[in-house]
């Protein structure tokens, strides 16, 4: 290690470590550090709780608003595909009449129409198709 093997060395390793240990024991902490740390932590914690509270209740408010203003009986379906259930059933009835495959297959084809991604040639919405 440092110079334990050298007889001319100014310090032996153990002595040096002991000196460093004693020097470390002399380090003190400012008296105001404790209240500073605890106060800052309390403030940061409160701010963090407040932030979570605000985010949570903002989301709740947003969702509540959305639900409150959704048309009655729409079940959200018209928002997803742009058609109402009545339009869907009308289209299903048309298919079943044209193809004579029955209402079930008509409903399947009508539903597929609803889910169809508009092509470049089909710029209108699904609702317009209906």
């Amino acid at each position: 290690m440092c110079n334990a093997s050298n007889s001319d060395a100014p310090f032996q390793e153990q002595d040096l470590e002991q000196m460093i240990r004693l020097a470390g024991d002399g380090v003190t902490v400012s008296e105001d550090l404790r209240p500073r740390v605890l106060e800052t932590a309390q403030t940061a914690s409160a701010a963090s709780h407040l932030k979570r509270f605000v985010v949570f209740y903002s989301l709740m408010l947003l969702l509540s608003y959305h639900w409150a203003h959704a048309p009655e009986g729409a079940n959200g379906m018209e928002g997803a595909v742009g058609v109402t259930p009545q339009q869907l059933f009308d289209r299903a009835a048309q298919y079943s009449e044209w193809d004579r495959d029955g209402m079930a297959w008509g409903l399947v084809r009508a539903w597929q129409d609803c889910r169809r991604i508009p092509s470049p040639h089909d710029t209108d919405t699904n609702a317009a198709d209906f």
Binding site: D25, V27, T28, V29, S30, E31, D32, L33, R34, P35, L38, E39
Partner: peptide, 11 residues
């Protein structure tokens, strides 16, 4: 010995 800071009354 390491001297510790004086405990604050608030905390």
């Amino acid at each position: 010995m390491i001297r510790r800071s004086t405990p604050n009354r608030t905390f």
